[in-house]
Design a protein around this nucleic acid. Structure first.
Lengths: 226, 226
DNA sequence: TTGCAACGGGAACGGAACCGGAACGCCGAT
DNA sequence: ATCGGCGTTCCGGTTCCGTTCCCGTTGCAA
């Protein structure tokens, strides 16, 4: 029983490139050029993972994502043109499980999809909102709650937290976080990550001086304690 | 153990500029001006990353890419003259892992290569986690667990442990450990290893005075008891 | 048994990594 | 046009880690 992926992308050349890369992994790929086609295909064909480009003629990627999320818990990967924080946050709010910024390497795409499939398999009930002790992340609302109380995070803080939450317990180096959140082309100070982590802590930690959720692993980076 | 990069580019000035930029990062750079040279060099020299310009006299970049990909999984970066979507797609189809459009900043090139190296490293060392009795090593979390309880190790302690764990039961001399962890050029006290082993023991051994995991073999070195 | 080399342990120093405060500039909202 | 929020940079303080040194102890060989 093979894995079936629906790729939604209007640029035909990119679409076929993606299709080839995914078929290399042994997956079956269905294509859709517009949002309408995507929804039709999704209702017609059994689908294990959906890949959506944000820029689409007609219904845009966010709308497609919301519509699909409304009727299914299928893993959704959003593709954004640039590492635009606003797009990413909007994508998560629309219910995406992961996102990728163009240009991306085919191998990275495969790796992300594999990760989603693994997650979907292991936790059959993939609860959309994540809990870490008294901390609760509700991506589709773009909201974080600490012991039931709403906490307002800025876009960047939210992205840092979500990034860490993608693989709880795993250590993310500053370099990796910079690449994932600010994009490749960013050559700023690694200290930048520190600042956002610090501000994040003042909001999500009961005692920011002794963080229990966002902990630093000296010499390596930061991680989200499980 | 240095990283080796093969740069394939016919324009000599660009080639040397790239070479200098990459050598600034501490990498060893091999050059090739034609596709034929590139393939010959790749088969002759050990190579960690390949950088290929699409426009080449003789065999073009796509062909070189396909040929290399046919015999190896080495990360490949393609360089296109313009941000021509068609080239990009063709490059990805040929098996490239990433691509860059001229003109590019040397720092961006380095960043991309670093990202590829990191991905290659993490995917190959996906050895889930190692177990030795009540000892469990989880590399991606940068954490070691003793009978289920998290133990925090420093970077060096962690490296010592992982090094020993590569070949459980085998004895590692101080010289070998110094060379593998601190690098060739290190001419410090051999006693340095002792200190880190001692601190490692206080953390991973139930009774550090009578170590059961990290055992010393008098006159030879240390080993990890199986 | 004696002497020597190898090893373990305590301690201290210098430096790197990290945290916290603060200020600046940009951009969107009012 | 103004204001405020947010991202970013800079700098000083602090903690933690790597390294060195010294001395006591252990094990081995003569």
């Amino acid at each position: 029983m093979s894995t079936r992926i629906l790729a939604v992308e209007d640029d035909e050349r990119i679409r076929t490139a993606v299709k080839l890369a995914l078929e290399d992994e042994g997956w079956v790929v269905a294509e859709a050029a517009t949002g309408e086609d995507a929804l039709a295909s999704f209702q017609r064909e059994p689908t294990d993972v959906v890949l959506i480009d944000i820029m689409l003629p007609g219904i845009d990627g966010f709308e497609v994502c919301r519509s699909i999320r409304h009727i299914s818990d299928v893993p959704i990967v959003m593709v954004t043109a640039r590492s635009d924080t606003h797009d990413v946050v909007a994508g998560l709010e629309a219910g995406a499980d992961d996102y990728l910024t163009k240009p991306f390497a085919p191998k990275e795409l495969s790796a992300r999809i594999r990760a989603l499939l693994r997650r979907a398999r292991t936790s059959e009930v993939s609860s959309p909102h994540l809990r870490f002790g008294d901390l609760e992340i509700v991506p589709e609302e773009g909201v974080v709650r600490r012991s039931g109380r709403d906490v307002h995070l800025t876009k960047t803080e939210f992205r840092v937290l979500v990034e860490l939450a993608q693989s709880p317990g795993r250590v993310f180096s500053r370099e990796v976080l910079l690449e994932r959140i600010w994009g490749y082309g960013y050559f700023g100070d690694g200290r930048l990550v520190d600042v956002h982590v610090r501000r994040l802590r003042t909001k999500v930690e009961a005692d920011p001086a002794n963080p229990r959720h966002v902990v630093t692993v000296r010499g390596l980076g930061y991680k989200l304690q499980v």
